[in-house]
Design a protein around this nucleic acid. Structure first.
Lengths: 347, 347
DNA sequence: CCCTTTATCCAAACCGCTTTGGATTTGGCC
DNA sequence: GGCCAAATCCAAAGCGGTTTGGATAAAGGG
């Protein structure tokens, strides 16, 4: 019904050239206000909207941002990834950009980027989940494809644009909080430490301990995908050991829930017998709210990060000459119900 | 470096016409194998790949599928949505399609669909989260935009293509399992019941009770966003009441975890003092695995649903004359550790 | 040997828009 | 009235592919 008018037909109906109609609709000054009005009314009436492929072809801009996610990534960062996407997506649509997501086999990731560049599918991309050994930025530079990193690429902080939270500092503060409460046996349930964010968190943890003359106990440090059972199983194992931790520092709310479950199963009261502090990405389906949140946490909205990352990227695209820019967010430290003073020496 | 060869240049390098080169690369028969080989080699060497905008314009196919997600939806179905997307995305890329996702304000949803249609941004769309009062399918039909529903639109099952799990049956079976174990006071923590999937689940629950001559107690039925605290708070309230339930039937693992937490806090042992059965969407970051899974559940992979939905849609697109098709998946009923016989009458 | 196929390849039109480089009209000013 | 600048509008040339309708050459048939 309302389908199918193109510029040509529209301009014929108006007895105007395509040029004029196009200019009228795109807000160029060389058309009288009267004509512009006449044009927009007719366009509205006929339900005209420019064919995006044609426009993209003519302007040479894809008006789209790419996100390539290798299969493996969304197994470990599933919900975080989506929250980021949601934030970025809002920014995109506000600016008339499309978001295109490619889910690819791990070994096709490079291919995916090459295709985006050579077929001009997107004007830029977001790089997710940088690892310690990271090479994507080199490829993208070679492909001349603007990009923003969510996280940081170690060694390339200067030359790339990125948005990241201060992982090291957050975990240092969290650790200090526990130390101040008298805990000395603190377990770290970290994410996969070949990822940049996780190594930084570990560093923050270790440095805080070191500053008080403590050495981390390898038996209390784990690194894996941040699932719920990961939290539960490892906490259970540690709590049942001869020398159990009195506190847990955890990289994700999901795993923290698992730890709380383990504590419950061991008959320990969270916030009393055992303290838990977690990083909270502020995922909408895992609200950790209330006057006193369930979990004491370091919190940083990954959704906000998504919005900002998108803005950075859009700026880069419209202003290609600009230098790399970056945003370093600080996590809030929020005291909830899950932490308390270290219990008096047991046994 | 490897950037920037177009068809014209490529064909000049080869002393061939654009026609021939195009045909050679697209596998048309009217070109000799020898030439085809020569062409592909040169294309490879120069890093040629057809500009996707140009191709889309020429062929009239967008080679993309749209997913429009209103802001509100991803607050309630965040992780499920992503898992679906991941499944669909794989199918798309296997078939050379792009996935474009629009995150829009709730009141712009219709607009988003109109734009996709009029600007030819996608060849089809997936409709997420159908409600009891659903109108999107009418709009899409009017816009002549092929679509597949994830879930079902009540009253339009015949005329639309969809993929859904058997929600009613799954919850009926789950309820029967509890009844067989001797539970009679069963709580239902459902999703938002203005959504189709949730009303069906409720129906399954109620029908199973009715079949044994039982009437559901309104005090034991809740409906809300399926967050973790939702599970915990409501379970807590019910467990502390005068006449507490002995079993919970829950619409989502996330809330089930909350219920388990509440049980723990009340000093009740899950699977013994209180039984829990949940629906499990098989989300990768919430594995409910092991020989005997933590939670007894009805399980249906939403990721698989995504794959299949994409296939349905792609079929519709390449075969527009075909009748609506649909896929009705049955959830598995899996016995885990969280269910057991009803405790002997307490008090 | 001539004519008809068949196998290859090509020139040009087209997809629907933007944009360049004028052409025409109008208005202000001396 | 004549001239110049500003205001409008337009024809046509891209953008980079695909596809139609031949043209040309080689092969096969009588």
């Amino acid at each position: 019904m309302s389908n199918g008018v193109n510029l040509k037909e529209l301009s014929q109906r108006l007895n105007l050239s395509q040029t004029t109609v196009s200019r009228a609709l795109n807000g160029y000054p060389e058309v009288s206000e009267e004509t512009r009005k006449r044009v927009s009314e007719m366009a509205e009436k006929l339900g005209y909207a420019p064919n995006s492929q044609a426009r993209r072809l003519a302007t040479g801009r894809a008006m789209a941002i790419g996100h390539v996610i290798p299969r493996s990534i969304h197994e470990m960062m599933n919900p975080i990834f989506l929250e980021f996407i949601a934030g970025a997506g809002e920014t995109y649509s506000r600016h008339g950009y499309d978001m295109i997501i490619s889910v690819v086999d791990d070994d096709k990731e490079e291919d995916a980027y090459r295709q985006i560049a050579s077929r001009k599918k997107a004007d830029g991309v977001i790089v997710h989940g940088p690892a310690n050994e990271e090479h994507r930025h080199k490829l993208l530079k070679e492909l001349n494809l603007p990009f923003v990193v969510h996280g940081r690429i170690p060694g390339a902080e200067r030359e790339t644009s990125w948005i990241d939270m201060n992982n090291r500092r957050a975990f240092e503060r969290a650790t200090n909080l526990l130390l101040d409460l008298g805990h000395t046996r603190i377990a770290l349930l970290n994410g996969l430490e070949h990822m940049d964010f996780a190594s930084r968190r570990r560093r923050g943890f270790e440095e805080a301990l070191a500053a008080r003359g403590l050495t981390p106990d390898p038996a209390l440090m784990r690194s894996a995908d941040m699932t719920e059972p990961y939290g539960c199983d490892n906490a259970m194992e540690m709590l049942k050991s001869d020398n159990p931790p009195t506190a847990f520092l955890i990289s994700s709310m999901i795993s923290a829930i698992g730890v709380a479950r383990a504590a419950g199963q061991c008959g320990l009261k969270t916030g009393k017998d055992v303290s838990i502090i977690t990083h909270d990405d502020a995922l909408s389906f895992l609200p950790n709210s209330g006057e006193v949140p369930i979990f004491t946490c370091t919190r940083s909205s990954v959704r906000y990060a998504g919005e900002k990352a998108a803005e950075l990227l859009l700026n880069m695209i419209s202003n290609p000459a600009a230098k790399p820019a970056s945003l370093h967010l600080d996590a809030e430290l929020i005291i909830g119900q899950s932490t308390g003073p270290a219990p008096a020496a047991s046994r």
